[in-house]
Amino acid sequence: MKNSYVVNFREIMMTVILAVLCGFIYIAWAPLYGVADAIYPGAGEVVYGTWFIAGVLAAYIVQKPGVALIAEVAAASGEFIMGGPYGLSTLLYGVAQGAATELVFALLRYRTFNVSTLMLGGAAAALASLGYDALTGGLAELTTGPMIAKIAIRTISGAILGGLLAKIIVDALAKTGALNNYAIIRKKMEKPF
């Protein structure tokens, strides 16, 4: 089909609604993160990866440029509008994380979407959020040990909860038939006429 690399309205709509649903889950996560992190620096980072799932999820389903960014921004807006704990900074996080995930898939020219690239996408988002933390959230003010722990754990969590979990969820979704109209399924089908 022509224009197969341009997202259409239906895909944007799907991306946004999926992302807003994820934003809903993010809010539930936030207190868990705060408390765990207070007990041991880096402990909260273990669950941090879920914050990156929207971008990877949508990009894996639609496999077109811009989707990861749209998803993360939409998830962040949803979280913000619903009164998530990070207020407006959520939006900035969203842009940074989405752009990073997007970059990974862009470098692969939106062709390969296997487990490792998805995990890479999640990890990239983690790095972007760390960059933002370094600017505003006091990452730079930590002592070396906790700082490294934070960076390492968040990146790994990003890869696993943001990337691997996204794959598991999408594969389960594919079985429900809801993804029949998207690249992830379509690519595998033969044209009858």
Partner: peptide
């Protein structure tokens, strides 16, 4: 005009 849905075998 022929139309066939993606998960169907026949138009």
């Amino acid at each position: 005009v022929s139309v066939q849905f993606f998960d169907r075998e026949t138009p």
